[in-house]
């Protein structure tokens, strides 16, 4: 799993900002990015456990080029815990009402295997209602 962190520098100009932008692009290029909604609504729905399960599974499988991050609320509080996957070519997949078990399965089948799961995506949840 890749980590992205700050550098100990001072930003004094527009080109310093540009350097950080470029650095972020380089670090994330070719990576799959997983974000877990850990705002108040997500945490209330148990997103922390989902986050932990996903991190655990990524470490167990020794997956490289995967970035796991906590984000805020994406607006669909009803469907929390929400986990979104951005593929290296920027395809976005939104998983809703996730559980730790579903999170681990998502890592195995989607991140490792490359086959997104439809049954937990937002479309499936909306069709079920």
């Amino acid at each position: 799993m890749k980590k992205v962190g700050m550098d100990a520098v001072k930003i004094r100009s527009g080109s310093d900002l540009e350097n950080i932008r470029r650095k972020m692009n380089d670090r994330t290029a070719g990576c799959t990015r997983i974000v877990v909604g850990l705002g108040t609504c997500g945490q209330a729905a148990g997103a922390q456990q989902v986050y932990d399960a996903i991190r655990q599974e990524i470490e167990t499988l020794h997956l490289q080029d995967v970035i796991l991050e906590a984000t805020g609320c994406v607006g669909i509080c009803q469907f929390e815990p929400v986990v979104e996957v951005y593929s290296p070519d920027h395809v976005r997949t939104t998983y809703v009402r996730m559980t730790p078990e579903r999170g681990a399965r998502m890592v195995q089948q989607h991140i490792q295997g490359g086959n997104p799961l439809a049954e937990f995506t937002i479309g499936a949840a909306q069709n079920r209602r």
Binding site: R92, T121, G123, A124, Q126
Partner: peptide, 9 residues
């Protein structure tokens, strides 16, 4: 034919 992402809803 399931909507994959939030952007499609």
């Amino acid at each position: 034919s399931t909507q994959r992402s939030l952007e499609e809803t």
